[in-house]
Amino acid sequence: MINGPAGRIEGRYVHGKQPNAPVALFLHPHPHHGGTMNNKVVYTLFHAFGRRGFSTLRFNFRGVGRSQGTYDRGEGELSDAASALDWLQTFNPNASSCWIAGHSFGAWIGMQLLMRRPEIDGFISVSPPANSFDFSFLAPCPSSGLIVHGNKDELVPENSVQKLVNKLSHQRDIRIDYRIVDGATHFFSNHVETLDKHVDTYLDNTLGSRMAAVAE
């Protein structure tokens, strides 16, 4: 349990085995649509970073699971994410780097946190809801990252995500690796393994092979 702005925040934390291990924070989909920290995509991301020796934290936004409080239209959820990141950094004061990853609503919150916390080195956004949430705050985007989307997403049209990718890719010194998963829906039903492979490839290319599989 973490102390948050609306009360206790429920989380799951795994400490990296290496000294000065990097840290990563994971954000789940919309609380009103069944989103929890046990979402399959969030769980997949959590373990992808964990396999590379990161200290990893996933948590429930306010009002979800055993987290206290009630849904707050994204404003309170951003505060929850900031509190979770504060806890993660306090527990890992000498972390070598910091990453954030989110799915759907969690991707939107994660990108907002990215704008507010310059210590975040990279991001992964899965199914970012670019058609229904405002991403115009990414001006400029402070970090490069990976965006993954399914071409059978029933909630977010692929062209809206492509527009977001184009906008970010034209910013100076920003590199967006955009991967489209054929046949995947918004929640990647039956395509989680493919998502995992894309994330693995991106992390290996970005972090370098020296970090791969240090935590078995």
Rank of each mutant, 00 (worst) to 15 (best):
M1R: 08
I2R: 04
I2K: 05
N3H: 12
G4A: 10
A6P: 01
G7Y: 09
R8N: 12
I9G: 03
V14W: 12
V14D: 11
V14I: 14
V14Q: 12
H15F: 07
G16C: 09
K17F: 05
N20D: 15
L25F: 09
L25T: 01
F26L: 11
F26Y: 07
H32A: 14
G34S: 12
G34P: 06
G35I: 03
N38Q: 12
N38T: 11
K40D: 12
V42W: 04
V42R: 00
L45Q: 03
L45G: 00
H47F: 08
F49T: 00
R52P: 10
G53Y: 07
R58A: 01
R62Q: 08
S67P: 11
T70R: 14
Y71F: 15
Y71N: 09
Y71E: 13
G76I: 06
S79N: 12
A81Q: 01
L85N: 05
D86V: 04
D86Y: 06
D86Q: 14
F91T: 13
F91P: 04
F91N: 15
F91K: 13
N92Q: 13
S96W: 07
S97Q: 07
S97F: 00
C98F: 04
W99C: 03
W99P: 01
I100D: 02
A101Y: 03
S104F: 06
A107K: 03
W108M: 06
L113S: 01
L114W: 01
I120W: 05
D121E: 10
F123A: 06
F123C: 01
S125E: 00
V126I: 14
V126Y: 00
S127M: 10
S127P: 01
N131R: 03
D134N: 15
D134L: 02
F135Y: 12
F135G: 01
F137L: 10
P140K: 03
C141E: 02
C141P: 02
P142N: 03
S144I: 02
S144M: 04
S144Y: 08
I147E: 07
H149V: 06
G150Q: 02
N151T: 10
K152D: 11
E154L: 11
L155A: 05
L155F: 13
P157W: 09
P157L: 10
E158R: 10
E158P: 01
N159D: 15
V165T: 09
N166V: 02
K167S: 13
R172E: 13
R172T: 11
D173E: 13
D173H: 12
D173V: 01
I174S: 08
I174G: 07
D177P: 03
Y178H: 11
Y178F: 15
Y178W: 14
Y178R: 06
R179A: 05
R179I: 08
V181T: 01
F188R: 02
F188N: 00
N190E: 14
N190M: 10
N190S: 08
D196I: 04
H198D: 12
V199Y: 02
T201S: 12
Y202A: 09
N205L: 07
L207R: 03
L207S: 10
R210E: 14
R210T: 09
R210W: 04
M211A: 09
A213C: 13
A213N: 15
A213W: 11
